[in-house]
Amino acid sequence: MSAEHAQAPANATEYIKHHLTFLQSHGEGFWRFNLDTFWIALFLGFIFLFVFGLAARRATSGVPGRLQNFVEMVVEMVDAQIKDAFHAKSKVIGPLSLTIFVWVFLMNSMDFLPVDLLPKVASWFGVHYLRAVPTADVNQTFAMSISVMFLIIGFSISAKGLGGYTKELFTAPFHASGPMAIVLAPVNFAFQLIELLAKPISLALRLFGNMYAGELIFILIALLPWWIQWVLGAPWAIFHILVVTLQAFVFMMLTIVYLSLAVEDH
């Protein structure tokens, strides 16, 4: 790290650039890795597993504790959404939906930490760049949405068979018979491909856009004098609770809906 990078930001522009710079591994282009996104997301994933695993181990049929009540409330909420939107049988959809909702919520919630807190702590250990919100990184949101796309393909093949799914790619949405089926096959395939690619793109950009905007607003508020930061920061933080929760819920619900559509015939 150069001496110039090691210095504190000198003005508002440098301050914003500093807080929007990722801690990256060595390498160029595709091979450069955002280490802060990876490690914070992984750490939050383990927190989710630990808390929910602890609640499962301590679960009782008697009077439940606060942790069990909270976990049961979240599980019942997710289960209710699955019953409303997913009309097939699957052992995967429940754990998948729960993991998506809680993990995305935890990653989004990192936006509630003071913007200077984690970068300041990291600087004590010689780390001069750190972004604390993994979902404000488009690489993270696209990684999750592309995983959903592969799940859509997998669910489709599992429900319809490889031959059935391949046939659907070339026969829907414009069903035809005879010579017209051959003529419309490339058109159907193009529409199917557009639909398949649009789903992960919309999933990724919706989550990224909302969280990046929230992160940027908190950074701008942090540039204000300390005595006015709470006047603007507190209302925005309260409103952001809705944004954080809603974006996790939307990502989960769209995943359930997409997988439900994947197992149904057109």
Rank of each mutant, 00 (worst) to 15 (best):
I82C: 12
I82L: 13
I82E: 15
K83F: 10
D84F: 09
D84I: 09
A85D: 15
A85N: 14
A85E: 13
A85Q: 11
F86D: 05
H87D: 14
H87E: 10
A88G: 08
A88T: 07
A88Q: 13
A88P: 03
S90K: 11
V92E: 06
I93A: 08
I93L: 06
L96C: 01
L96E: 01
S97R: 02
L98C: 07
L98W: 10
T99M: 13
T99P: 01
I100W: 02
I100G: 02
I100H: 03
I100L: 11
F101S: 00
V102N: 00
V102Y: 00
V102K: 01
V102G: 00
V102T: 03
V102I: 11
V102R: 00
W103E: 05
V104I: 10
F105P: 00
F105E: 01
L106S: 05
L106D: 02
L106K: 08
M107G: 11
N108P: 06
S109C: 15
D111A: 13
F112V: 05
L113H: 10
L113R: 03
V115K: 12
V115Y: 12
V115H: 12
D116W: 15
L117S: 12
L117C: 11
L117T: 14
L118N: 03
P119H: 09
P119D: 13
K120V: 08
K120G: 15
A122T: 06
S123M: 06
S123Y: 13
W124T: 10
W124A: 14
G126F: 03
G126H: 06
V127N: 05
V127H: 05
H128P: 14
H128S: 14
Y129R: 13
Y129A: 08
Y129N: 12
R131P: 00
R131F: 00
A132Q: 15
A132K: 14
P134K: 12
T135A: 07
T135V: 14
A136G: 07
A136E: 01
N139E: 02
N139I: 04
Q140A: 11
Q140K: 04
A143V: 05
A143C: 09
M144G: 03
M144Q: 07
S145L: 04
I146S: 03
S147W: 07
